[in-house]
Amino acid sequence: MLTACATFVLLIAGALVTSNDAGLSVPDWPTSFGSLYKIPQLVGGVKFEHTHRMVAQFVGILTIIMAVWTWRSDRRRWIRYLALGALCTVIAQGILGGLTVLFYLPPAISSAHAALAQTFFCIAVAIAVFTGRRWLEKIPAAEIDSRRPSLTTLGLLSICVLYIQLIAGAMFRHHGLSWWPHVLNAPIVAIVLTWTAIRALLHYAQIEAIRRPAVIMLSLLIAQLCLGFVAFMTRVAWGHDAVQPELPMVISTVAHVAVGALLLATTVVFSIQVRRHVPGSAAKPLRTEDRATVAARAPVSS
């Protein structure tokens, strides 16, 4: 949970770097102005870029601790590999961050850095869910879903459209794409997510683990659409001729990135819970004896 929270802070720090056009204010990497440990004077763009680097280092350390801890203490093999995957992702993310500085912010690398950041955030949130008390102690509801498309499919579709939206948004922010693919995909995202959340609320509202992320998904979606509109106005409509990044643009775009990350992570959590509590008709529901042993399969500690 701590890693997930720190990653959210890191996402905001990264978004501040992009919105303030400060990505190259520290021109070297992995050093900062030639030093690995000295903190430079935090003025101008350096304030954003170096803070981002420091938070990133902190998240890197937390991820190492989390991976080692999970590997040593959790009996579930798949979660050990997930923790290892998180560690590999954070290393790859650091390298991408370095490459984007060394190659002067090429849109492809910068966008990959932005997309992988949210991927890592989702992994960290997923690990927090998998190691949380509710996951370990609560017995899955194992409701049957015979509707088509299944809720599992809708959840995965929601993640897909959100991911496309994330990449289109990142490409726009990093000057690799025009704004219109991101704006054009927004109604698709809204329709798919609303469909998914409404379906979940209509049929599985009694399962708290599904109801809660579905409600949060809808709330975040509304907030995100509003923020997207404000970000578009402050950046594209009013701010395209601005001589410097203006505060309304910075606030709205950073908030749009942050809420977007929360929305993606919530959708991932929703899909995980759907997979657990409402397996599709093709999937075999848990037998009574399996349910009884769920708690027994839990790790030694989390």
Binding site: W29, P30, L84, L87, C88, I91, A92, G94, I95, G98, L99, L102, F103
Partner: peptide, 22 residues
């Protein structure tokens, strides 16, 4: 194997960093 993979990734990062500077 895990240790080797991590070292490779780290090495790759350093190589790219250094070669770009060169």
């Amino acid at each position: 194997w895990g240790a080797i993979c991590m070292l490779c990734l780290l090495g790759l990062g350093l190589t790219v960093g250094c070669s770009t500077k060169e």
